[in-house]
Design a protein around this nucleic acid. Structure first.
Length: 307
DNA sequence: AACTGATGCAACCGCATGATA
DNA sequence: ATATCATGCGGTTGCATCAGT
């Protein structure tokens, strides 16, 4: 009765995205904001299905995304959270706002799983710290993690964090720079996707740029609201400052996406937190301890979570 | 230089879930 | 209450690149 899934329709292109397609998609999102993916192929003429567009945006084109070069600290967080949460990559990614779930999943499958496997094999005999094993990773692996026991310690619902507070709120300035980047790069350089980086947050001046999600229809408005409320799931009064990314590297600030709805959601979240502020979980303690030592772009937990 | 296997990552697929009519 | 649509998530695949021979 219904039409076939969009990805099965004739003429839908598959495979790697071209720089030209990226530009079209970014231009569209710059104008309309992320969301309403169904309409993206129709309105842009892209021969891609909506899912593909969404994935491309989330995993690669979205501003603030960091690719590769996982720091030892990020590595430690991933190992720890994977032990706690299992393969809930989106939940894990919510602690590392600059990383996508796909990236984390790939990194786990290609690097960390092997490291841990190797550790488990080695630990039967003697464990040798390889040069590429981070202190955090080693510490974690050495101490071991009784996952079940740790799960028992989880006194608050993890669903609190299950909304990926990803950086949907695309700064259109960043996207403008992204476009500039594409234009500057030769097609070949653009195709070399790993080189892409957004830099220099200070010299942009797109006249019509807005730093908030532009909702042009009730539906998009709803979408934007969902996104903002999703952010608010982990937000309270200190989040503005605590969740700001390194501005100098061109990352967007969480503070910029705040709107009336988020303020309201913040208030609700605050109220909720006041009503049922759970004791600090083992996970939060661990993350906070780590945060004291190093802050390289992961989601910092507000200090007053500890009180 | 050519071949081959290993590796890493982008993208796809199928299913689940929530929203809406 | 139900069907349909839109989106999100996790597992998997395919291809480009790298490293070793």
């Amino acid at each position: 009765m219904g039409r076939p899934p969009c990805c099965d329709r004739v003429g839908i292109k598959k495979g790697p995205w071209t720089p030209e397609e990226d530009i079209i998609l970014v231009s569209y999102i710059q104008e309309h904001g992320p969301g309403n993916w169904r309409s993206v192929p129709t309105n842009t003429g892209l021969m891609r299905c909506s899912k593909s567009c969404r994935l491309r945006w989330i995993n690669y084109l979205r501003p603030g995304i960091k690719h590769g070069n996982f720091t030892p600290h990020e590595e430690g967080i991933i190992i720890h959270l994977q032990a706690l949460l299992g393969n809930r990559w989106a939940a894990i990614a919510s602690y590392l706002p600059q990383r996508t779930d796909n990236d984390i999943k790939n990194y786990w499958n290609t690097h960390l799983k092997k490291k841990i496997d190797k550790f488990q094999i080695d630990s039967a005999g003697s464990y040798v710290i390889s040069p590429d094993t981070s202190p955090v990773c080693h510490d974690y692996m050495s101490k071991g993690c009784n996952t079940e026991a740790v799960k028992q310690e989880m006194k608050f619902p993890l669903s609190r964090f299950s909304h990926t507070p990803s950086i949907y709120a695309s700064s259109t300035e960043n996207i403008s720079r992204l476009l500039e980047g594409w234009v500057r790069s030769s097609p070949k350089a653009a195709a070399n996707k790993k080189e892409f980086a957004i830099t220099d947050n200070n010299n942009s001046s797109s006249s019509s740029s807005s730093n908030t999600i532009t909702a042009v229809s009730p539906k998009e408005n709803k979408q934007a609201e969902r996104i903002q409320v999703g952010c608010a799931a982990v937000a309270h009064e200190d989040l503005d400052s605590l969740l700001s990314f390194e501005n100098t590297s061109g990352m967007i600030s969480w503070g910029k996406i705040h709107g009336p709805q988020l303020a309201q959601a913040n208030a609700e979240a605050k109220q909720d937190a006041e009503n049922s502020q759970p004791p600090l979980s083992l996970l939060e303690k661990w993350l906070f301890d780590e945060a004291l030592g190093q802050t390289d772009g992961f989601l910092e937990l507000p200090a007053n979570c500890l009180s």
